[in-house]
Design a protein around this nucleic acid. Sequence first.
DNA 1: CCGTTTGAGGCAAACGATTGTAACAAGAGT
DNA 2: ACTCTTGTTACAATCGTTTGCCTCAAACGG
Lengths: 334, 334
Amino acid sequence: MAGVHPSTVSRVLRGKENIPIPEVTRQRIKKAAKDLKYLPDERARALRLGKSHTIGLVVPDISNVFFAEIAKSIEIESYKAGYTLVVCDTNEEQEKEVHFVNNLISRGVDGLIIAPVQDSDGHILDLKEKNYPFVLIDRCFEDMEANAIISDNEDAAFKAVAHLAGLGHKRVGFLSGRQNIYTIKKRLAGYRKAVKEYNLERNEALICGNGFTFESGYEATLEILLLPNPSTALLISGNIITLGAIKAILEKGLNIPDDISMIGFTDNIVSPYLVCPLTTISHPLREMGKKAFDLLIKHVESKDNLPFTEEIIKTQFHVRRSTDRVLSQVEAAW
Amino acid sequence: MAGVHPSTVSRVLRGKENIPIPEVTRQRIKKAAKDLKYLPDERARALRLGKSHTIGLVVPDISNVFFAEIAKSIEIESYKAGYTLVVCDTNEEQEKEVHFVNNLISRGVDGLIIAPVQDSDGHILDLKEKNYPFVLIDRCFEDMEANAIISDNEDAAFKAVAHLAGLGHKRVGFLSGRQNIYTIKKRLAGYRKAVKEYNLERNEALICGNGFTFESGYEATLEILLLPNPSTALLISGNIITLGAIKAILEKGLNIPDDISMIGFTDNIVSPYLVCPLTTISHPLREMGKKAFDLLIKHVESKDNLPFTEEIIKTQFHVRRSTDRVLSQVEAAW
DNA sequence: CCGTTTGAGGCAAACGATTGTAACAAGAGT
DNA sequence: ACTCTTGTTACAATCGTTTGCCTCAAACGG
């Protein structure tokens, strides 16, 4: 429409000022582009340039606020940095994760941020082998060196149990998420360490559950409540699980915190407004997202091979009403 | 590596059985592909084929469960149908929405699902003009014909207010989200209709708020509570706003539902477990997502221009404890 | 008046995959 | 012995951009 060669259009629209093209032609091209509502084909550009200015984010459940918050902050950072973010939800299914990672690479994303399902790690090792830039977030692999932004799960769990011990609890239950996941392993380690240190009841039956769903939280809680000696407190590894636990507790006619204390692993905007305002461990999710993005971009935009960085982010502990002194049967009788 | 021409590789890997290629060669190529961990370049394929098997989803806030649920169901449907979903979060900013829509088109997505910010509609009209397949979800434009999957906001709001009227409430507040949005306009219309029909107090001061944030919910609620005659019930247009409202109510030392009833517009998994189990209007979000996806794919895969479809989905009403009979001052004195 | 610089912008190759057509060889048919 | 299949695989063009290089004309210097 402007009567010039595509290459000239490209030079004008990409703003190559050093190539001499008279202002009249520039204007003619720009006007034509506007009139035609011309949008460059990013596929073709990416193909030619070998760079897509796109990054991929792979999370296990986008409908969980935990990952939604992370996604949101990475999205905001990407936008600011001129990158487009592609979000994929694996639904905690390994097969989908492999599919998405390959798919994203096929579409030429410049890098990946992954919160892995962790049923296997072959595809992650492939990434390392290909020297593909990626950052693990929230979950990493113990025996693998990689970029990772994680939180201090072990320490947080330890402190949470310590808090309960300080309130006189002797039997603390641990509602687990999927047990083969890094975060859960670490939290469990912290739990065990505190149980030992504060001399609480050691009983494998108090460690219950294997999943991040409402139902798995509900059922695991029932199992613990139906023990001959149910726990007087619960440490709960996930915010959807927490709701299942509340359901079970209410159904049994129990009161929080009088009959049972609870601590939620993962604070969110509703924690203070639940049936009983929930004591939680809170993760600075926005900060984690930003750090993961910055780290990824550093690797993407660097020519040489940077060494891997693993950063552990401190969590915070919010005491609300769901944790209180244990009422022993004797005290209760009073 | 297999010593053959790329075209032969393509034919083998795409499984063109009608082109005669001897089994030995096929195996040689497949083995090489596996050994090299070959992944086809989807950009190049999309460029050549004019089809990317990708669709774009543009939502105003992915960290809001409402849209996260929609995103999740669309993601699941896309995966099943062999499409990749690209999710973009506009943060309720018009400028970002325009950017994302253009960006997605540039990358050659086959179609778009949009929950628009609705500060303007020029970019949507462009889509129509270009005959680009798209489906609006949750929010549509009153004066524009387009594919849309929406819910019966007006009716739902009407019924909610009717429910409150039935409980004896005469002054019902309406906590609004961003007021220029289709859904809010409709809800407000339903509210006004019920106010008229049940002869409730008509007072513009009872319509309050303009945003979907926690803070805007908090402040709008305070405004209503500080009126000389505060409302005895609230209809609340959004789940984050609801939390802000609860904060304001608790801060004022009021009790739900004794001092004030509330109905939340948008049920979610926590609604039953809030300080006071919340009476809500629930949207079948997964179903809406699936319908939007199916509709989009129908348009994407059809050669001819299908007529636009607008489907209105029925909401459900969940009565929980947050709505109760109004306690008049006289009754309360008893 | 001729050679050289400079301005303006076209040409062509490349990115990687796809596909209609062509090419070449071996074998079949006459 | 020659043509005609048929089987096997290569060639070339294409998708839309980008970029190094080249061309052509006008202007300039001597």
